[in-house]
């Protein structure tokens, strides 16, 4: 099963490679990994999307916790949570297809953020699944470039991942 794991980690050189290294050394999957500093500049927040049986996920969270730089983590799958990923898609347009692409982007609440005579750049956020659906809904041949941030997530309600 797919799990989103949110990690608070010391904002130190090498912290990211400890996490990445752990995954390759132990043969775990990484679907995506995002990382940025938090409001507290000594801490980074990492969001890691992985896939595995319950046993594997249990080992992954234990091994991550064991890294000295990891301060705290949660498996978002265990809580009600919101997931968001940012995507930008550059598509080739023609006079005939322009309207159609715009309509489809609207349906997915995408925004057109750059326009040239024969291209659009569409910006879209949502769950990774929604972004996949959008890509499936437009003509594959029209896609010039896709860039995705990887999923991030946050739990709902009062509970949160903080110190």
């Amino acid at each position: 099963m797919r799990h989103i794991i949110s990690i608070l980690i010391e904002n130190e050189a090498g912290a990211l490679s400890r996490v990445a290294g752990l995954f390759t050394a132990r043969g775990y999957n990484i679907e995506s990994l995002t990382v940025a500093m938090t409001e507290d500049e000594t801490l980074s927040r990492m969001t890691l999307v992985t896939d595995g049986t319950d046993d594997v996920i249990e080992q992954i969270t234990k091994q991550l916790n064991k890294l000295i730089d990891v301060v705290k983590l949660i498996d978002l799958e265990e809580a009600v949570h919101i997931e968001r990923e940012l995507m930008m898609v550059k598509v080739r347009t023609s006079r005939e297809s322009r309207e159609e692409i715009k309509r489809t982007a609207d349906i997915f609440r995408g925004k057109i953020i750059d326009v040239t005579v024969n291209t659009y750049v569409i910006e879209m956020t949502g769950t990774s699944e929604k972004l996949d659906s959008f890509l499936a809904a437009i003509d594959e041949d029209s896609i010039i470039e896709v860039v995705r941030s990887g999923a991030t997530g946050i739990s709902r309600g009062e509970k949160g991942l903080h110190l």
Partner: peptide, 14 residues
């Protein structure tokens, strides 16, 4: 050294 030993130390520092 920090990179080379990362998988075989409990922790390392530069």
């Amino acid at each position: 050294m920090v990179g080379i030993t990362r998988p075989c130390v409990k922790h390392n520092f530069l």
